[in-house]
Design a protein around this nucleic acid. Structure first.
Lengths: 170, 170
DNA sequence: TGCAATTTTCATTTTTTATTGAAATAAATG
DNA sequence: CATTTATTTCAATAAAAAATGAAAATTGCA
């Protein structure tokens, strides 16, 4: 987690300590809303207010997490296009900066996490319809209505994704 | 979980077996997208295609979960306004039916789960601003821009909620 | 190419979350 | 109002998810 208030290491390097803490908190919560682990939020939160690119090693040290965790967290963030690597001359380590265009982060998330669910939902509804003819006529309308509602829900979900993307054009 | 394909109990009571399975699957996924436990999705999925109100006991038996789990799951669903109790004459047990207006379910979810996050995010951004003046002038613009982006993000989030509610007026 | 530095991977451990089962509580019936 | 029936609560257990740490793989440099 974050460094001890008694040893504000970051202040020495110019990042105001409170800012760092609040940023990490902010993104830990945001990421957990998206179902991502704490460490991912911590890393992104740290990078977000870092004017300099940070190496994996620096990240792990600052956050007091293992390098394994840092590596996996950065992998996740890379796959979300939430961080990018930045070349630092005279330094062989990979360095990372936060991608501060949230739009990209969210659109990747929506496409990778939500869209597949929507698609499998559609298939599932089709299978429900196939199961339906075996039902007697008077029962049918109850089931029909429910299936229709599911169909509308997934349709609304489908319309939602682009709408979200538009609204999040921060 | 769901009953064994070899003993389709539900067919005996008029609920097509495939429909029940697919419905449970559908809602297990949907609920887990909202961060709710599997059992909650199972219960809602079962109720969604049940023409008759079901008692807690029937639910637990059908899904092969404990009555403790059923009780807690139903509590969650009640708090989300996703199920309502229904009086069944000559029967002392509480019976449940699914609230099939998803709008209500989602708006409760948005208000209870998302809105508080947005509000705490605003406070957090204020604290970031307070931390800022300690920073030198040339560093300031970097931080200012980042904070401004966070502000826009939360603002977009704020606009999102009503937009979501509107789109989900299934 | 060989070596050292760095990163990734993944089996193990830790932590967190969900489920069970049983005791406590509440509600209805005779 | 005692007893049976139903529901809730909650400590204990099980399951799932995340973090660690060390071995394996990769990378850059001499």
């Amino acid at each position: 987690m974050a460094p001890d208030p008694n040893t504000p290491k970051s202040a020495e390097e110019g990042i105001p300590y409170t800012l760092e803490i609040e940023s990490i908190n902010f993104f830990v919560r945001l990421m957990s809303l998206l179902g991502l682990p704490r460490s991912v939020g911590e890393i992104y939160g740290l990078l977000y207010f870092s004017p300099e690119p940070l190496s994996m090693d620096q990240i792990a040290t600052r956050l007091e997490i293992s390098i394994g965790s840092a590596s996996q967290g950065l992998k996740t963030l890379r796959s979300l296009k939430a961080v990018k690597t930045s070349y630092v001359p005279g330094n062989r380590r990979d360095h990372y900066v936060a991608e501060s265009e949230f739009r990209r982060l969210f659109s990747t998330f929506l496409n990778d996490e939500i869209l597949p669910h929507l698609e499998s939902a559609k298939e599932r509804i089709e299978r429900m319809e196939e199961a339906l003819p075996k039902v007697s006529e008077d029962e049918k309308s109850f089931y029909d209505i429910r299936i229709e509602k599911l169909r509308r829900l997934t349709k609304a979900g489908g319309r939602l994704l682009p709408a979200l993307a538009r609204l999040l054009k921060i």
